[in-house]
Design a binder for these strands. Structure first.
Lengths: 136, 136
DNA sequence: TAGTGCTGGTCTCTTTTTGAGACTCATATA
DNA sequence: TATATGAGTCTCAAAAAGAGACCAGCACTA
């Protein structure tokens, strides 16, 4: 019986239906997780965990992200405090993105998940194939 | 110098621009992570890690998910092998969802991340507020 | 001196994904 | 007979993502 189970309901429920207030920020897990569980965030965190990168470098490193989503995802990661953005007065000016301490702290557990993914890719693919075979 | 850094590039790049083939499945991390990094997956994993739930119970537990997305997310989690779906011949029939062994295995690292989120919610909120204050 | 490329973006338009909510179907209950 | 139930599906509107043109200032080249 660990305590996570006891407090699950309060972590999930963000607000009661009906009158009062209630905001998504009332659920810490959702508030934080939804910022990093989107298509590009974990990928960019992974890149920046290696070393700081400039905008164009990231774009080349992740060739199928659009400039629009790269800008926006970096902006969101910066807003949540995971990423630091620094402009250098070169001509033309260059911008470097790096992880903050908070970003590195968050990358710890994220990295565990990424490693799980790498290790269990085969099992997931197998499950998918099995599922697709029976449902057709 | 750990090995994650050495192999970062191969994990990120899914295909070279230009001719040949190349598939998203060539990048294990992306192939697996994109299945679980969406708005509802981690939340449902969290619920099912507690105990098996039926469709309607999940809907009540997560009041702001639409039936459409609940159906679809559960379907995707089942396809990737994390969730087991069992139909009971009651009238009307009821359906129970539970984690598979693979699902429980994946929930290990995911749970670490969720705990980080809970613990660092304050820091993230503070970062957001600071960011919003300077940018206006 | 005009043309080209580099930087890190923004703007607009189209396509895809999500959300809201009505509808189904067979049974049970009031 | 009217209504509720469980687990969805279907349709339509709204939001988000993707594609790709465009922008500014400066350096280098022809």
């Amino acid at each position: 019986m660990d305590s996570k189970i006891v407090s699950l309901r309060s972590k999930l429920e963000i607000y009661k239906a009906g009158s009062g207030g209630g905001n998504i920020a009332d659920c810490p897990v959702r508030d934080v997780i939804q910022g990093i569980s989107n298509k590009w965030s974990s990928l960019l965190m992974m890149a920046l965990a290696e070393k700081p990168y400039r905008f164009g470098e990231l774009r080349r490193l992740v060739p199928d992200i659009s400039q629009r989503m790269l800008t926006q995802t970096l902006h969101d990661l910066q807003r949540d405090g995971y990423v630091h953005r620094e402009v250098f007065p070169t001509k033309p000016p260059s911008v470097e993105y790096s992880l903050t301490d908070l970003g590195r702290s968050m990358f710890g557990p994220l990295h565990q998940l990424l490693q799980w993914a790498e290790l269990n890719h085969g099992a997931v693919r197998a499950a998918r194939n099995a599922f697709d075979a029976t449902e057709t």
